[in-house]
Design a protein around this nucleic acid. Structure first.
Lengths: 346, 346
DNA sequence: ACACCTTTCGTGTACGAACACGAAATTACA
DNA sequence: TGTAATTTCGTGTTCGTACACGAAAGGTGT
C-alpha cells in the first residue's frame, strides 16, 4: 500500500510537507506543492482514514433527538436500534452518540430537549422533527452554531438540513390505495380511519391520505371514500361502538385504510364487532401490527424501514463529518409491502 | 475512552501482559490473567479495532467468485455493486478484494475459476455456487486450507459454509402465488413459463415453482396450473409462436408466472402477440424488467435484494475475520414486492 | 551454592497519519 | 554585509495496539 512516507520519499521531502499539502495548510512553496500533488495523483494515493483518525485524536459527537419510548413495541424503538447498530460500527473511529428524547405528545418537551441538545455542542445532529412549527422556530440555534443536521421520518421542507431520510409519504399512500383496491371486491366503498392521538405527525399522515385518494381518483373503478376520526385510543369500547355504528350506516364499505401505525387498534375492533370480512391495511411493521397481519385481520402493512432510517442517518452524518461529502437532499427509503407471506423475512 | 494502557495501569502490569491476555497467548500466570480479565470486564473495555488493525499490519484478502456479466443490465451486476460499496467501507482497514469470474453457462469455467481462486490463497471467499455438483466436488480445496466461505444467492445445503445469504426461494414462490392470485379473476388458470437457458440455477427456480404451486393448493379457489418450457431465448419469433399457440389451446389461462429474472422476454412476447390482458409476475428488479413493470405489462416483480447480497456478504466476512464471530448460518434477505407504485423508491 | 531451564512479564519499536516545534533557508532592509 | 523577519520544511511525539526481545523471578538437579 501507498503511504504518506512513500510519497515523501518519491518527492524527496519530509512526511510533514506532504501532510501540509494534503491538508491544504500553509507553509509549502508553490513549486513543491505542485510536485507533491502530481506524485500523489500518479501513485493514486489516498489517505488512510484509520490512521488519520487515530492520529488526529479528534472525537466527533452526534446527537439524536427522538421521541421517548415506553414499550419495546413502540414505533420509535426501531430507528433507535438502527442508530445503535451504526454506532457500534463507528465508535472505534472516535464517534460518540448522545441521545436526547422528548414526549411526542408534548411540544414543550420537544423544544426543551432541542435546546438541551444544542447546548451540548455536538458536531452533528439527527432529528425526528415531529413538531413542525417548533422546529422552524428553533432551527436557527443550530444554524448559528453551524451544526449540520439531518431529519428522519418527517419531511420538513424549506430548511437547510443536509438530508432528509424517510419515506415519500404521498407515494406510500398511493401504493396503499393500489393494494386495497386489489383485495377489494368491485363496487365497494373504503373508509379511512384517522387516529387523532398522534397529532404530532400529521404531515406524513395527511400526505398518505392524499396519495391514497389520488389512487382511487385515477383508477377506472371509481371507489367512493369515506373518512372518520377516532380520538380516545385508550377506550376500546367506544371505538368499537363508533366503528360498528358507522359501518352499519354504510354497508357498502368493504375496506378500511389506517394511515398510521395504529392499525392494530382497528384490527382489534374488527374482531370485537365480528367484521372479519373487512379488508384492512395500514402502516409500520411493529410487533402489535404483525400479530394481526399473521392472523389475517390485517391484509397488508406498508413499512417505512424505520431501522434503516436510524442506521442510514447516522452513517450519512458519519460520512459527512469524515469526508465533508454532501449527501443527497432527499434520501427516500423503500416503500415496502409487508404481507403475511413475507413478514418473516424482513 | 478506555485503552489498553488504562487496563495495564489498573492491573499494575505492563501493556504487553494485558495484550497477551487479550489475545489468549501463553506466557501469563493464571493469577494475573484472571485479575486482568476481571478488570477488563469491570471497565468494559473493548479493543480498538482501528488501532489494532493498524498495528498488526495484517492485510486480509477476500476473494469473490461470481458469474461474468456482459451488459450493465445483467442480474449479476447488482451484487457486484454491493460488493464494491462494502469494499469502499473496509479498504482502509487493510482489506483487499480479488474478483474471480466464470461463465454462468459453462461449468468448466466455474471449476477453473474456482481453482484459480483457491490458489490465490485468500483469507476468505464469497461464492455464488450456481453449479451445485461442481461446488460439492471442489469445496474440499477450501476446507483443506481452512479458508472460510459464504454462499450468496444459491442455497447449497450440507456444507460448512459459514453462512448463506439470499432468499428463501420457496417462500418467495409462495408469495408470488398470493400476488398472482390477487390480481387474477376467479376461475382462471395460470401458466408457469420456465426459461431453460439458465439451467445453472435450477435449485432456486424449482423451489420457487414448488412454493408457487403450494400456495394454490392451499387456497380456497383451487386454480389450475399449467407449465411450459422455453429454450432458445435469443429467438423471439419462436417464443411468440409457441406462447400464442399454447394460450390459444388453453383460453382460460389468465396469468403467467416466470420463476426467473427472464420475465422481460415473456413481457415482450405478450405485447407481440397482443395479449396485454394477461397478468404477469416474475423475479428481480433489473432494468429490463422494470421497463415492463412501468408500462403495466408486468404486474409485479419479486426482488431478491441482489445488491444487499453482495454488500452483506462482504461485511459479514469482514466481521468474521475481525472478530471471529460466527454469523447465522442462514441469512435470509427480504422477499420484496416490487410494483409500479414503489419501484422508484428502492 | 551453582549452573541451567522455565515461566512470567516489562521495554521498545512499529503501524500511518497529524501536528507542534523549531531548524534551516530565503528574503528584506539598513 | 549584518541582522531581523519571514517562509519553508524536517524531526519528534502522539494515538492504541501488536509483537519481538530479553530481563527478572522462580524452580530443579547436582
Amino acid at each position: 500500500m501507498n503511504s504518506i512516507k512513500d510519497i515523501a520519499l518519491k518527492a524527496k521531502v519530509s512526511t510533514g510537507t506532504v501532510d501540509r499539502v494534503i491538508h491544504n495548510r500553509p507553509g509549502v512553496s508553490e513549486k513543491t506543492k505542485k510536485k507533491i500533488l502530481k506524485i500523489i495523483k500518479e501513485s493514486n494515493y489516498t489517505v488512510n482514514t484509520v490512521a488519520s483518525l487515530l492520529a488526529s485524536k479528534k472525537t466527533y459527537t452526534i446527537a439524536t433527538l427522538l421521541p421517548k419510548t415506553k414499550e419495546s413495541s413502540d414505533f420509535w424503538e426501531t430507528p433507535k436500534q438502527g442508530i445503535e447498530k451504526a454506532f457500534i460500527e463507528i465508535k472505534d473511529l472516535g464517534f460518540k452518540i448522545k441521545i436526547f428524547e422528548f414526549d411526542q405528545f408534548n411540544s414543550d418537551s420537544y423544544v426543551s430537549a432541542f435546546k438541551e441538545m444544542v447546548n451540548s455542542e455536538p458536531n452533528a445532529v439527527l432529528i425526528a422533527p415531529t413538531f413542525k412549527m417548533e422546529t422552524l422556530k428553533n432551527i436557527s440555534l443550530l444554524e448559528d452554531k453551524e451544526i449540520p443536521y439531518v431529519f428522519i421520518n418527517t419531511e420538513t421542507e424549506g430548511l437547510n438540513n443536509i438530508s432528509f431520510i424517510g419515506q415519500k409519504s404521498k407515494q406510500a399512500g398511493f401504493l396503499a390505495g393500489k393494494l386495497l383496491n386489489w383485495v377489494l371486491p368491485k363496487k365497494s366503498e373504503v373508509l379511512i380511519v384517522e387516529i387523532r392521538k398522534n397529532i404530532s405527525n400529521y404531515t406524513a399522515i395527511n400526505n398518505r391520505i392524499e396519495g391514497f385518494k389520488d389512487f382511487f381518483q385515477h383508477s377506472e373503478k371509481a371507489i367512493n371514500i369515506k373518512r372518520i376520526s377516532i380520538h380516545n385510543i385508550e377506550d376500546q369500547e367506544t371505538i368499537n361502538l363508533q366503528l360498528k355504528e358507522y359501518l352499519n350506516q354504510h354497508p357498502t364499505i368493504k375496506g378500511i385504510f389506517v394511515p398510521s401505525s395504529k392499525v392494530s387498534i382497528i384490527a382489534k375492533s374488527i374482531i370485537d364487532i365480528k367484521r372479519e370480512d373487512l379488508e384492512l391495511g395500514g402502516f409500520d411493521s411493529i410487533s402489535e401490527n404483525i400479530k394481526y397481519l399473521k392472523n389475517g385481520i390485517v391484509d397488508f402493512l406498508i413499512s417505512q424501514k424505520a431501522e434503516q432510517q436510524g442506521y442510514d442517518g447516522i452513517k450519512l452524518l458519519f460520512n459527512y463529518l469524515i469526508n465533508k461529502k454532501a449527501p443527497v437532499k432527499n434520501y427516500y427509503l423503500p416503500i415496502e409491502i409487508v404481507l403475511k407471506e413475507n413478514v418473516d423475512y424482513l
